[in-house]
């Protein structure tokens, strides 16, 4: 019997809202939306956490501009604070080394991290989800039972198709869906909302493609000044 499974709910019980930022495809902006949403809410005085669950391609730390993250040990591990956010990422343990491992071992690592992390009281925990519907995504669904999903899609037909498939699975599993947020919108008069016919989920709005966003990656004050962050702030107000 795996004893770790018995304490995961306890580790998360003082968190009001757990929001998974997902969408199926890689490269659609899940990490930047998760990290920037967390930063925006923390700046507004909320207690916020960010969990980078993309173990094989973690990058939330790059967005936050930090790689020196040492959790404190106290009846488990306490996530280090980064720009006011309680931040947990596997990079705290892999020392910048690449981490190649198979699904069953990713599952074990996710279970371990969830069982030993003492988040404490939070208003919001954002979970930066891995792409796809493989072991890590299924483990997150299995282990973090109160997650609500914020789905990201770009105007691309490819990402939209993959996102719809993830949505279908989440609905089958009765997961709560916050809504769909369009990212990297390029054409002013063409919204993703027109392509969501038949879907029973809220459309939360569009974030324009911001050519200056890349320059602000790793620099939190600059990131929060971008057009992307301003538009995201409006979207976040809709779903919190």
């Amino acid at each position: 019997m795996d004893p770790r499974l018995s304490v995961i709910d306890r580790r998360l019980e003082k968190i009001e809202n757990i929001i998974a930022v997902s969408g199926g495809k890689g490269g659609i902006g899940k990490s930047i939306v998760a990290a920037a949403s967390a930063l925006i809410l923390a700046k507004n005085g909320h207690r916020v956490g960010l969990l980078d669950l993309d173990f094989c391609g973690p990058c939330a730390h790059v967005i936050l501009g930090t790689d020196k993250l040492y959790p404190e040990e106290e009846k488990g591990i306490i996530p280090p604070k980064v720009n006011g956010i309680s931040f947990m990422s596997i990079i705290s343990f892999t020392a910048g080394c690449p981490w190649a491992l198979r699904g069953s071992e990713v599952s074990n690592a996710i279970t371990e991290l969830l069982a030993i992390t003492q988040w404490g009281m939070l208003d919001y925990l954002f979970v930066d989800m891995p792409p796809g519907l493989g072991d890590p995504a299924l483990d997150a669904i299995r282990l973090i039972k109160r997650m609500k999903y914020l789905l990201i899609a770009t105007p691309s037909k490819v990402t939209l198709d993959v996102m719809k498939k993830e949505l279908q699975v989440l609905e089958e599993l009765n997961m709560r869906i916050i809504g769909i947020l369009e990212n990297m919108k390029r054409k002013e008069n063409e919204s993703l909302s027109s392509k969501l016919d038949g879907l029973k989920v809220s459309f939360l709005g569009s974030l324009d493609y911001d050519p200056h966003l890349e320059e602000a990656i790793g620099n939190v004050p600059e990131l929060l000044k971008t057009g992307f962050a301003r538009q995201l702030h409006e979207a976040v107000e809709k779903f919190i």
């Binding site: 596997i90 343990f93 690449p98 981490w99």
Partner: peptide
């Protein structure tokens, strides 16, 4: 902390 980090 996380035995799977052996892979790193």
């Amino acid at each position: 902390f996380i035995p799977e980090t052996a892979h790193a």
